[in-house]
Design a protein around this nucleic acid. Structure first.
Lengths: 143, 143
DNA sequence: CTTGACCCTATAGTTGGGTGGAGGGTTTAG
DNA sequence: CTAAACCCTCCACCCAACTATAGGGTCAAG
């Protein structure tokens, strides 16, 4: 039997079998070929795609957004310029995320340098800064 | 009446009033002072904190994780080195997120340069690359 | 001194993203 | 040829994170 069964792809992407079928129902994963006995048969590409989905999820994208990212290709009714607009919007959203993450990272690093391992946390004045993180960045109007 | 009512903080943080009360119940926001008539009264710090929560959520942190981030301060029973360990773990998680986002960004930018606004999407060979994004990075074993 | 815009608690309902089981067929190692 | 380990569909259920509703009190403008 050539190709991968659903159990193999699920294991390869570190997801549950049910989750893989769920993503198929939700349109995130193309319905694969079936064997004569109705088993799903995948190529290794499917694992790639599932891992992408998994990673994008930890980055704060919803399944709907991930679906949009993935469907930037094979949309015959869209022109290249439509895609371009969408891609650029996604890039902007990602840049904003990176910038937000960097701000949090900077604050945590300051915190880390300040607290060099002795005494109770109360002593560290930088800890308070955590709550003021957003003053450091450009508060853009994202969703 | 000095201080902000819940309606003001909610508006200031672009959240619903119910969400603010929900965060209080969940321990993400300190229970504020109350007026004689039992109204919650906040300082502007509360808006700061709520905006931090909101932003962290779009970056893929769960409320539980955000609670941990916020409680890295004022935890009298923890020593500085405990906090240091936690802070460094958070920094690592954030670095991973940034790296993942940059990979996706790079792919999208390649895509964007390739498709310069004419013809159907099928013509663009780079579009296929989207599915192969994770081959570009170091596939670390994150959650 | 009322009326409309607030606020309170308590609790139920919703949405997104899965997870698990029933009931049944298939494949493969021994 | 059979038993373990898969696979299938359908459907009910779960958790996180809200969101709304009922039922009632408060406050300030006119």
């Amino acid at each position: 039997m050539a190709g991968l069964t659903i159990g193999k792809v699920a294991k390869g992407a570190e997801l549950g079998i049910e989750t893989v079928r769920f993503y198929e129902r939700e349109g995130l994963l193309e319905p694969p070929e079936r064997t004569a006995s109705n088993y799903r048969i995948y190529s290794s590409q499917a694992i790639t795609r599932l891992r992408f989905i998994k990673r994008a999820k930890t980055l704060g994208f919803t399944l709907k957004e991930i679906k949009e990212l993935l469907s930037l290709r094979h949309n015959p009714s869209a022109s290249k310029s439509d895609v371009k607009v969408q891609v650029e919007a996604k890039i902007d959203a990602i840049k904003q995320k990176i910038s937000d993450l960097k701000n949090i990272q900077n604050t945590l690093e300051t915190l880390d340098e300040c607290c060099n391992g002795k005494g109770p946390t109360d002593d560290c004045p930088i800890l308070k800064a955590l709550e003021g993180v957003e003053r450091l960045n450009g508060e853009s109007v994202s969703r």
